[in-house]
């Protein structure tokens, strides 16, 4: 009951001032073996929101991310992201769709043979930004994440926190309307974790919708943002200014 109430509260509050960025309508996803990874998930995230998605492993968080990125398609239901009906998207339209979403992963996923500048510039190259503008945009975003001096370094020469900032710069350089962060602090120490979270908050203030999947109880509790809690493929709670729910 609590879930329903909080959801109603959010939608009532935001209906007037914002449009929907991510909408899941009765989404289920089953793999060929075992129990469904998601069952009957309904979710609406509005433009400009900052949302945490929390839950244990096996809760369906990863499946949710994969559905939003169109790495997977839902078995039933509808996934809508920034106006795209993601489940029905043709394969050749996927690249263009993905440019709406900046992604940050737990393991950074940088191209390890490329230096910092090239890693970030790559995101601009794929949308065919002229070289002249790339030379302006990349240093600018690197200074936003605090790495202006390290543009020539290779990923392995950087600390985990620095690598995650590079990944963040890459995700943001094309100014996508949505930022997805999948356990962005999973491999970082508390200080670096906080720095990354502060950056995400800054980015959110600039108007970007931010969705963070995380295990980090401390951060979730401290930041007082909307928290969606999942368990065994079902949304068990959705609270504005929520906290990390103890399972047991």
């Amino acid at each position: 009951m609590k879930t329903k109430e909080s959801k109603r509260r959010i939608s009532k509050k935001n209906r007037a001032e914002s449009e929907k960025m991510i909408v899941l309508e009765d989404v289920s996803k089953s793999y060929s073996t075992g129990a469904p990874a998601l069952s009957g998930v309904n979710l609406t995230i509005n433009k400009g929101e900052f949302v945490f998605v929390v839950g244990d492993s096996g809760s369906g968080k990863s499946t949710l991310i994969k559905l939003l990125l169109r790495e997977l398609t839902p078995t039933t239901g509808k996934v809508q992201v920034n106006g795209y009906d993601v489940g029905r998207l043709k394969r050749r339209k996927v690249p263009k769709f993905r440019r709406n979403i900046g992604v940050v992963f737990q393991d950074f996923r940088l191209l390890k043979d490329w230096n910092v500048y090239e890693n970030v510039a790559f995101a601009q190259r794929i949308i065919q930004v002229p070289t002249r503008e790339i030379r302006k945009n990349v240093p600018s975003i690197l200074s936003t994440v605090g790495l202006a001096g390290k543009y020539k370094a290779k990923p392995r020469q950087l600390s985990g926190g620095e690598q995650q900032r590079v990944a963040l710069a890459r995700a943001l350089v094309n100014q996508p309307p949505i930022l997805l962060a999948d356990e962005p602090t999973g491999n970082l120490d508390p200080k670096n974790s906080w720095d990354i979270m502060k950056l995400l908050e800054e980015i959110n203030k600039g108007g970007t919708t931010v969705l963070v999947v995380t295990h980090n109880r401390e951060i979730v509790n401290a930041m007082q943002k909307r928290v969606i809690t999942m368990k065994k493929g079902v949304v068990i709670s959705d609270e504005e200014k929520g906290g990390y729910i103890d399972e047991d």
Binding site: L69, R92, P95, K96, F97, R98, R99, I101, V103, R109, L110, L111, F122, A123, R125, I126, I127, R170
Partner: peptide
Amino acid sequence: KEEIAIMKYIGATDFF
């Protein structure tokens, strides 16, 4: 393989 996957996540086309 990993490199290709990363490029695809960022939104690179198959051609690119």
